[in-house]
Structures are given as structure tokens and as C-alpha cells.
Design a protein around this nucleic acid. Sequence first.
DNA 1: ACGATTCATCGACAGACATCGATACGAGGG
DNA 2: CCCTCGTATCGATGTCTGTCGATGAATCGT
Lengths: 122, 122
Amino acid sequence: MTSTTPALLPIAGDACCSGAADAGALAEPEAQALARRLKALADPTRLRLLSIIAAHEGAEACVCDLTEPVGLSQPTVSHHLKQLVDAGLLSRDKRGVWAYYALRPGALDDVAHALVAGVAPR
Amino acid sequence: MTSTTPALLPIAGDACCSGAADAGALAEPEAQALARRLKALADPTRLRLLSIIAAHEGAEACVCDLTEPVGLSQPTVSHHLKQLVDAGLLSRDKRGVWAYYALRPGALDDVAHALVAGVAPR
DNA sequence: ACGATTCATCGACAGACATCGATACGAGGG
DNA sequence: CCCTCGTATCGATGTCTGTCGATGAATCGT
């Protein structure tokens, strides 16, 4: 599916004059990049994980602090945290046996801004 | 007023308050509601549809204007548009044979604000 | 050195999702 | 009245995703 980009795409982010009638619209690479970050956020469990971490002491938490509030198994929580780290929303700091996760400052605002500015640039 | 109704749901029970340290964190209903809107946005095709509609003449477009730019079949585009309408991000106005879709003003900002304010309330 | 604890990875399974072709609905035009 | 055009819906299908139990890797205390 969509393995081969059928139509050429001006990946070179030239801001103006994209060429088609949908000038100024999101190009596919940008849409995919933004969708990838939004997909990491579009899950109630992951939203709660972010929120719990943000509200936690020191704005960081280890996995064992998170499994109980969300009521899921430890592998599942680790899986969700990995998604959030891969999306650049969380940072992971392993100290000894514990892995402390913390919100990356500005990451959420970055996504929110990219969403509004990317879709409705005027 | 952008009518930013964060849809703060009164958490019914919560009587147990099992001493969780996640006080002030997103509750499940709020997380589900926000995740539902984000899920509608977490797709490159839908992001492009929104963007193309926003950049279109008069900030509205019919289905026949959208199938070609995104390179998908008409039923698929209709399906995506329905998702966006159901999420409250698009409005649908059927005039004659054509169905015109337009961005609902403030809907995107609403989601962006709910995201930032909901996860990191302090 | 050994056992206990914390976390990540693996394999599997159910459910959700994106996509298509075919078809049904509704409005205009001959 | 039929025929065409634009749209929505339906059924099918392949892929992605969330979840779990089991297992492996790394670290700390005794």
C-alpha cells in the first residue's frame, strides 16, 4: 500500500508555488511526519501516561509507577512508552535498575503548533 | 470566544481514590474523548484533506475536488471525510448534487489547546 | 556468587482500520 | 420518463495495533 509514491512529490519543501490547485497544502512527507506524531498521541492510554508522568513528582516516573494507574501489564506499558519516546515526546533516562521517563519540554506545544500551522497556514 | 469547551466530564465515582499519585491527571473519559479527536487527525490522508480544503477557493471543497489530489478512490475519500465530520472538524453542506466540506472554525485550535492543557495542566 | 527486582523484547492473538469494487440513492437534463 | 453524474453506503480483504504471557538482559543487595 502506497509503497510506490505514484505521483511525484516536491519533497524539497519549497514553501510557495507547489504547483497544483492545492497550493500551500501539506505535502505527503510533511503529512506523514505529523501524522506519525499524532498517532502516538491518539490513544487514551498514552495520553494518560503522559499526563501521569507530567503530574508526577519531579515530572518523571518509572515503569513501575505507571502500570498500576493505567491498569495494564508491564510489557504493554513499556510498549506504549517506547512509542512515545520514538515520537520524541518522552525522554528516557536509565538510572540503575529503574528507567525514568519525562516529558520532553516543548514537544507537545510543537505538535500542537505544527497541527494548527500545518493545516491552516493562514 | 472560540467556545473552547474542554468537555470536562464530572468523574462520577472515584470514591476509592486509591491514593494514586496521579492526582490531576487525565481521567479515562477525557482521555478517550481527546484520543478520539486525535485519531481522526492521525492519518496523513486526512491531514492532507483538511489542508487542501483549507487552501481551496472559499475554504470549501466537494468530494470530486479531493479525490485527485490525494490519489485515492471516491469511496475512500468519502469515508475519510465522514470521519472528520464525525470528529467535529469539518462541516458538510449539500447543495444540489454536490457536497461541500469546510473546516469548522476553531475546531483545530480546540484540539490543540485540549492536548496541551489536558496533558500538562500546570 | 546468588537471588531478587526492574525493564525490554518476542511470539501470538483479537480487534480496529484503510482501501477497494460494486451498488444504491438523489438531483438535473434530455 | 429515462439517463447521467456526484455521493454515500455495503461487503470483502489485507494490514496495522493493542494486549497479554513468557523469556532474556542488566543491576543491586546480601
